[in-house]
């Protein structure tokens, strides 16, 4: 084992209380970040589900031949924004309306609802401007009697989405900033606790790079352990919320790995900043 690695682990052995406190501090700041991430993730997932329902319905005019409708459907299906086009017959429309309206299902009679082409857009093309543009193009077709897509609803959805994204970025950066500051301060304590050792290392001719390396390993290890602990806390919170409050979605494996890696990176950066500051000042 290299001296730097040994020294890093000796740091844990020599001041276990400080080390545990450091790990806990890192864990709790990442836990706060994790909870926020979980909320952001679920809001995003909920919005994505709603977004999936954005569709344009082009009602087929009476007297339009099946062939003309089919040609138009193929034509529309080739639009770059369009994910799928579904032909809904008058009967299917009635069936759907009955299902949606439950106890009022008997108010409709056969033939009252027109057939339609239901156009679903690809993700990324569901913003109000694109939806409107596609709807306008559909209106130019002869078969289209009327084209509807819930303009106000789409606009509201996008406003909420934009606010959620902006709030996510701002709060996320704030949480990350706080985490970096807390982790940096925590590691600074570890650096100060070993100031004597650092002074002796410098005195006997150790290079700054050499002095720094055990602290960088120390920071990365504490960051990783803090990240794992934060993950466990987030998981427990998630389980409780899912069980007692609302069914939610947890981070996928990639995000879990990224979260723990972020702990390691934050620990590493916090250490690097603290040690460099200390070395500059002594």
């Amino acid at each position: 084992m290299s001296l730097a690695t040994r020294e890093a682990f000796n740091g844990f052995r020599r001041s276990p209380v400080l080390s545990v406190l450091s790990i806990m501090t890192i864990a709790f700041s990442l836990y706060a970040f994790g909870l926020f991430g979980l909320v952001a993730l679920n809001i995003r997932a909920a919005l994505a589900q709603v977004e999936d329902r954005v569709e344009i319905r082009a009602f087929v005019a009476d007297g339009t031949t099946a062939e003309a409708t089919s040609t138009a459907a193929g034509d529309i299906g080739a639009f770059p924004e369009v994910q799928s086009v579904t032909f809904v017959t008058s009967e299917e429309a009635l069936e759907r309306a009955r299902k949606d309206l439950g106890e009022f299902s008997d108010v409709f009679e056969a033939g009252i609802l027109p057939a339609s082409l239901d156009v679903q857009l690809k993700p990324g093309f569901r913003d109000p401007a694109t939806v409107k543009a596609v709807a306008d193009r559909l209106k130019t077709y002869d078969f289209a009697d009327d084209v509807r897509y819930g303009e106000e609803w789409v606009q509201k959805l996008y406003r909420i989405r934009n606010i959620a994204t902006l709030a996510g970025i701002v709060l996320g950066l704030a949480f990350a900033g706080v985490a970096v500051i807390i982790i940096g301060s925590t590691i600074r304590m570890a650096v100060l606790a070993r100031a004597r050792e650092i002074a002796i290392m410098r005195l006997v001719g150790a290079t700054d790079g050499f002095i720094r390396s055990p602290f960088l390993i120390d920071g990365a290890v504490k960051g990783t352990l803090g990240g794992v602990l934060a993950l466990a806390l987030t998981w427990v919170s998630f389980s409780l919320i899912t069980r007692f409050v609302i069914t939610a979605q947890f981070f996928d494996v990639r995000l879990v790995i990224a979260g723990v890696a972020a702990g390691a990176v934050l620990g590493f950066i916090g250490s690097a900043l603290s040690v460099s500051r200390h070395l500059r000042n002594v």
């Binding site: 020599r14 290392m201 006997v204 001719g205």
Partner: peptide
């Protein structure tokens, strides 16, 4: 650091690492 490796420095207050043995202090 290269210069300091050619020098030995000692102080009134010894500046030893209290949590290490004598041999570890020198070996360090």
């Amino acid at each position: 650091p290269k210069l300091r490796r050619k020098l030995g420095v000692i102080f009134q207050n010894f500046r030893l690492l209290e949590d290490r043995t004598v041999e570890a202090n020198i070996g360090f």
